[in-house]
Simulated assay, not measured.
Amino acid sequence: MSTIRILIADDHALFRDGLRMLLEAERDFQVVGEAADGDQAVKLARRLKPDILLLDQEMPRLRGLDVLREISSLLDSVRTILLTASIEKKQILEALQLGVRGFVLKESATEVLLKSIRTVSGGQYWIGRESVGDVVEALHSLTPSFRDEKAKQKPFGLTPRELEVISTVVAGYSNKEIAQKFSLSEDTIKHHLTNIFNKLGVSNRLELAVAAIHHGLAGEQ
């Protein structure tokens, strides 16, 4: 089992201490550094090059999104999860554009944080159901041509079932939940998703959700 090297960036010392203890209880996690403000986060990210940066959205000296701008050249190797008490829809889109790979609310259960770190470390995005919904809703409101795009919907050779699966992915359903919804096996859902990814030219669920909204492929759930 390979070790996931983690940098914690948060201005609250008690939160950092508790988070370090929590993470270091996991055999595959190693906390390599802590930053108390945005400037320190930038310097440590550049020097330590962690696998995961757990970044508080609101910090002194440099806010979370400003930190991302400063370390943009590192984001291929340093994957960032934004820790936040709350986040606005526009900020979600901006954060994604700046390279954020995941969002975790500070009130989330421990298991959610641990799973998000392993998921993002594995090269995927961690966007829970609520976050995906926010992305979708924000795309609706921030893309003036959305209705025109929907009117010019491109089928991409998608089957009716594949369109149904796309709608559930956009709504934030997991493979298990999609399988239950349509009374299918998870393997069948994975097969559908592979075909959908190939037809749309996307490589993950987040890209699929964005492409589906842009091309008007997502129906109501």
Rank of each mutant, 00 (worst) to 15 (best):
His140Pro: 01
Ser2Phe: 04
Gln97Val: 06
Ile6Val: 15
Ala209Pro: 04
Ala179Ser: 06
Ser185Gln: 11
Leu23Phe: 02
Ala138Arg: 00
Glu164Met: 13
Glu186Gly: 13
Ala218Met: 04
Asn204Asp: 08
Gln153Val: 12
Gln97Thr: 10
Phe156Trp: 08
Glu207Thr: 01
Gly172Val: 12
Val67Arg: 00
Ser185Phe: 08
Leu75Gly: 00
Met59Gln: 00
Gly157Lys: 12
Leu193Tyr: 05
Ala95Ile: 14
Glu70Ala: 14
Pro144Thr: 05
Ile166Val: 12
Glu107Arg: 15
Pro60Val: 02
Pro50Glu: 14
Ser145Trp: 15
His12Ala: 15
Gln97Tyr: 04
His191Asn: 14
Leu44Trp: 05
Asp134Ser: 08
Leu93Ile: 14
Val120Asp: 09
Ala85Asp: 15
Ser203Leu: 06
Thr143Met: 09
Gly102Glu: 01
Lys43Glu: 11
Leu7Val: 08
Arg147Tyr: 09
Ser77Gly: 13
Thr110Ser: 15
Lys150Trp: 12
Ala179Asn: 03
Arg101Trp: 12
Ala138Pro: 00
Leu206Ile: 15
Gly33Trp: 00
Gln40Pro: 05
Arg47Asn: 13
Pro144Glu: 05
Gly38His: 09
Lys106Trp: 09
Glu130Pro: 03
Leu22Lys: 06
Gly157Tyr: 11
Leu23Lys: 09
Glu164Cys: 02
Thr159Phe: 00
Ser167Tyr: 11
Trp126Glu: 01
Glu26Lys: 14
Ser185Thr: 13
Leu184Ala: 15
Gly122Asp: 13
Ile127Ser: 01
Ile71Asn: 01
Val32Pro: 08
Leu184Tyr: 09
Glu24Gly: 04
Leu113Arg: 03
Ala35Asn: 11
Tyr173Phe: 07
His214Cys: 02
Leu14Gly: 06
Ala45Phe: 00
Ser185Lys: 05
Leu53Pro: 05
Lys190Phe: 07
Ala151Phe: 11
Glu94His: 08
Ala25Asp: 08
Ser131Arg: 04
Ile4Glu: 11
Lys90Trp: 05
Tyr173Ile: 11
Leu82Asn: 01
Arg129Lys: 13
Phe15Gln: 10
Leu184Val: 00
Arg118Tyr: 03
Asp134Cys: 13
Leu206Thr: 06
Pro160Gln: 14
Val210Met: 14
Val210Ser: 13
Gly18Met: 03
Leu62Ile: 06
Glu94Phe: 15
His192Glu: 12
